[in-house]
Amino acid sequence: MTDAPPPIQALQDKVPSAPPRSQWLDVWSQFRKHSGAMVGAGFLVFITLFVLVGPYIWTLDAQALNMRARDIRPIYTALWDSGAKVDWAHPLGSDNLGRDGLSQLIAGGRSSLAVGWAAMVLTLVIGTTVGVLSGFVRKLDGPLMRLTDLFLSLPILPLLLVAVTFFRQPLRAAFGPEGGMFVLIVTVVALTSWMPTARIVRGDILALKEREFVLAARSIGTRPLHIILRHLLPNVLSPIMVSATLGLATAIITESALSFLGVGFPSDFPTWGKMLADAVPRMEDFPERVLLPGVAISLTVLAVNYLGDGLRDALDPRTRGR
């Protein structure tokens, strides 16, 4: 009778079956399971390499004119139209001044992606900061939201013209003709498109900050900055991701509209948006000239969208491990 009673099975300590995993490892493994996100990420890596490494493989100069080789159709048109004017020297054809389609696509992608990403990130940073601050700090809400209203109502064209008048020359002196324009375009696009993000983020923050988990965090003495970073921001990730995808598309298109106004890059500097805009009048005879940049923009935006979906799923602990 001296035997100790056998321990109840349920009270026994479980031995961990595997060493504990870090949070980011969990996020990564969840992200990897998201096939859309992986395809999206893969495409983004591909397109980035395409525009960065492309010029070293396909060495034709995108700005070089060749009046003898203009209006060449892409090589694939030979499949159904044996009489089409095709040339292996220009696999994606050439435009009305004989500039090579493939090298234009590469060079255009370089500038469009650079502008798109930079403007999108800047938009998100401004929009999220303003939105979080005005949603979280009651005193700042009024002034910041009236500022947002002001920016929403400013007419864009005069704003652009003012920006050009005052800043083109100094920026050109500091960064060169193309670099200066890049800074100007990115700033202008970001300054005119951060407002929806700010209002959406603020709306969500207004609701979130009254929730119990924020109260709990506050009651254990968490500092406001910490509440914002750890508790509020992860919960507004979803609208931010949507803004990011829509913002990328808007930035790439807006850039092309800017060059019409003389605010954009010099006219011999290709971008996807400009290629698309220039090709619209000729879309019946040369559909590839609208399709190639159009598809490139769409696929990039789609890829960012899927990537955003995957990121959100991976960062949400409730979906993780589902």
Partner: peptide, 15 residues
């Protein structure tokens, strides 16, 4: 000034 034909002219003359 901004105008499709003038931009084509600019490119040709630059070349």
């Amino acid at each position: 000034s901004t105008n499709a034909v003038r931009q084509d002219f600019q490119l040709l003359i630059k070349d």
